[in-house]
């Protein structure tokens, strides 16, 4: 756990040296977490996605000034929070164009509090959750243990190797095999729904 931020630091450093590809990796790493944060402010799935995208673009533009005083993700979360709040403000200010808009504009006043996921989104979430649970239950215990200690408890490979009394290389390979298994079960789910990104 001690040097968890290293890879971020390295990626940020590369972005600041002009490597946009490194920023792409940061997006891929943090997009779920940023979207989740934003979904606490905004309920509409499409809007969450838009604001998530906007937050990353803002982060890229602000990156010349990122000085590493705080961890990258703390800094990113702050930008995302501001993007979400700004979005809410903009929505409220948007002038009504027709009667229909007026009505929806009025409901937007309650935006922060409502959580109306689309039925499809609910289904998708539920499917993902069930698949993860089922796959974890069915996989060999040593794989499940290694992965959950890593993902849930945030233990380092060294700590896991002590707990499981096995070499670090084994931990590394167990975690990979657990991920590989989960990934193979989840991939068909995601590709089915590829067109619709759902919150």
């Amino acid at each position: 756990m001690s040097d968890k931020a290293d890879i971020d630091t390295e990626l940020v450093r590369r972005v600041q040296r002009g490597d946009k590809g490194a920023f792409d990796l940061l997006v891929r790493k943090y997009q779920q977490r940023v979207a989740k944060l934003i979904s606490r402010f905004i309920s509409d799935a499409a809007e969450v996605e838009d604001v998530t995208q906007e937050a990353f673009i803002k982060a890229y533009r602000a990156l010349p000034n990122f000085r590493g005083d705080s961890a990258f993700y703390t800094w990113l979360y702050r930008i995302a929070t501001n993007a979400a709040k700004n979005h809410l403000v903009t929505i409220r200010r948007r002038p009504p164009r027709s009667d229909v808009d007026v009505t929806s504009g009025a409901t937007e006043q309650g935006y922060e509090l409502e959580g109306d996921e689309s039925p499809e989104g609910e289904m998708m979430s539920e499917e993902i959750r069930r698949t993860i649970q089922k796959t974890l239950e069915e996989m060999p215990e040593e794989l499940r243990l290694a992965l959950t200690m890593c993902e849930f408890d945030g233990l380092t490979y060294e700590e896991i190797s002590e707990v499981m009394e096995c070499p670090i290389g084994t931990v590394r390979s167990r975690i990979f095999r657990a991920r590989h298994l989960l990934d193979s079960k989840l991939r068909p789910l995601i590709s089915e729904h590829e067109v619709e990104d759902v919150v």
Binding site: V27, Q32, E49, T148, E151, F152
Partner: peptide, 19 residues
């Protein structure tokens, strides 16, 4: 995957891809 595992635990799975 890690985000989803944690999300499944706290009841909120988010799925976006804006990369």
């Amino acid at each position: 995957l890690g985000d989803w595992m944690r999300g499944a635990a706290d009841g909120k799975v988010v799925n976006v891809d804006v990369a």
